[in-house]
Design a protein around this nucleic acid. Sequence first.
DNA 1: TATCACCTATAGCAACGCTATATGAAGTAA
DNA 2: TTACTTCATATAGCGTTGCTATAGGTGATA
Lengths: 240, 240
Amino acid sequence: MNFDGQLPPKARLLKAAAELLANSAGKPVSTRQITELAGVTAPTLYHHFGDKEGLFNAVIDVGFEEYVAGEHNFAPTGKPLADVRQIWDNHLKFGLDNPQLYSVMFGNIRPESRPARVAEAEGFMEEMLEKAAAAGQLCVAPQEAARSILAANVGVTLMLIAEPAAERNFDLSDMTREAVISAVSSEAELSGAGAPVGASSVVVAAIALNAALESSHPEQLSTTELKMFLEWLDRIAKTS
Amino acid sequence: MNFDGQLPPKARLLKAAAELLANSAGKPVSTRQITELAGVTAPTLYHHFGDKEGLFNAVIDVGFEEYVAGEHNFAPTGKPLADVRQIWDNHLKFGLDNPQLYSVMFGNIRPESRPARVAEAEGFMEEMLEKAAAAGQLCVAPQEAARSILAANVGVTLMLIAEPAAERNFDLSDMTREAVISAVSSEAELSGAGAPVGASSVVVAAIALNAALESSHPEQLSTTELKMFLEWLDRIAKTS
DNA sequence: TATCACCTATAGCAACGCTATATGAAGTAA
DNA sequence: TTACTTCATATAGCGTTGCTATAGGTGATA
């Protein structure tokens, strides 16, 4: 159907695969779909890319770098930990934009395909953390820190991908990101943007009361009052 | 080949699926393998389980509970945060013991299969964290804490699964676990009081919140709202 | 005995990833 | 030009996958 002008078949396959993967909303994409959209036949795909996974890896090579290290989305600020946050957010964005590709890369178990990609992402994270370590901002080895942060990043991304886009709550990402970063960094960053650890005792007390009320007998309060009451407690508890 | 004695076909299918999944080292398991090992034909599988995923979910129902909540592997200690650590470790162990099943549950994107399982694991984690919140050990809402911890748990488990068993470094798990737990907990673990659950804890929490509110007026509540709020707090403290 | 619901088998469909083989196009050497 | 080589694409189809339309067998109940 679509022959994409004068592009050679290899490029058309890459473009078709990327397009289908981006729009497939999580459902698997078949080689037949790809070759039809690219206007070529099956042997062409296997001639250029070996197999389906080879094609997907080629797409990833084009797309992943763009998000993780591409100039458009990432420019080192000189502040290593800020760069780590940027890498985290780019990683998440890539996963949400390309759920199908992402699951191939990180949700997969097969040891022959996953480690190469993971190692690449890990190496990039580690690179930043080495700078942080050189600046005395790390309290663990950069490699261990990179692995921990990347693991949490993958878990958060998979969890958010699995949710309907409308219900996604990015507090999960921010909160977890700050948790793992602050755990590996030597100084308590008072930057404030993340999760203020020494949050006001009001929040702690509100959360405790909220939980206590829900676990005790709510009959003591009239239902309408209780609803408003819990709503306010909830609002207080979420100001963090 | 193997008819497993007198077990009914449904049980044979479950057993065959579990066995193949456990030994398949990450490679996909086909319905034909399963039905052949169980000594039944395809329609039997679909009659009992609907589809392949239904069978896998049934296997998970048997196996997952065993690790996450089973009596043999989990007994609440009364210290909520210690229980959370136990849940984390059980979760990881389950993933490493059943990599294929685990990837179906958590590494998968399809929104129709994943949320049910995730919600179950999340609910269990949340249950523990509510107790922690009631004891004043949490600085965020239990639900948010549960999601963050579970996300990190999933990420760590997938990363360790993808590594050769010999090279697995469990420091990654311990480190990340403590990072997310400490991020959601109010640093003062007052666990000396044990687990105060019931009306009395409501009073204690209400008094604490009352005092905290009066000393720091949060801008989230209008003054009239604040007055009513404090009045109700007062009533709770007296009627319980 | 007759009925009926439940369970299982025969046989096969459509879609999948992939390939053995052949054909065309393009460059090189004589 | 002609012959040879090489790369790239097409025709056609293999073996496997998840799944099902249909029918037959089996045991409990009336």
